[in-house]
Design a protein around this nucleic acid. Sequence first.
DNA 1: ATGGTGGCGTAGCCA
Length: 266
Amino acid sequence: MKIATWNVNSLRARADRVEDWLRRSDVDVLAIQETKCKDENFPWELFENNDYEVAHFGVNQWNGVAIASRVGLDDVQRTFPGQPEFGKGGKNPIQEPRAIAATCGGVRIWSLYVPNGRALDDEHMGYKLNWLDILKQDAHGWLQENPDTQIALMGDWNIAPKDEDVWDIDFFVENQMTHVSAPERAAFSAFEELGFSDVVRPHTEGQYTYWDYTQLRFPKNEGMRIDFALTSPALTARVTGASIDREERKGKGASDHTPVIVELAD
DNA sequence: ATGGTGGCGTAGCCA
């Protein structure tokens, strides 16, 4: 079985590329982030025509997460318990469409779009850290409930856990950039302390998953590793390989993120 | 190549 995660940066703008990629990648499950649409604008046919079931969570033009699967799609869950709300300036707070789960082929798949943070002193950063803390507490409970459960926390984590995960750590620190700060990294490693593992890194040393559209970042390979699949111990034991599809970042009309793929033993 | 982002929705926000 092959499972993958991909921030597509608008599913409508990327429909043709997503369809092409589904066909050639041959993944069984795809966790999607940033669909950037409501259900009424979601390209359901794209998945149906390729024999994938799909579940979507989107309420406006922002965020939006989905899971496509051809190995079953059961117990769909939108938001995690206690997921913090956000509204800019405290106005009209909602539980944003940043988390959806489904059980696919015996694996509890989460498609996660972690809040960006925007700036170290922005209210969005507090939201980001709180959001991750509540998710961590939930994940802890799931593992305690059943230590053998197979969970994949997949998505755009908007955190670069190691210095090598950005093209120039000095640039990030000097400019007080987000994604590399100590609190963000602590929020990420908290999942590893629970027993979740970044199973992609050992197979993709030195590779990035994201390159900003600006400043010729991709041609210069000035990227970041911010998309991850964190697996529970029982699922980690099944991992046979992983890859980052850098080819998908090339050409006109690419997302700024690449697909990240995990291969599992049957 | 005298450039230097893209998407939504149609101004400005978000990343």
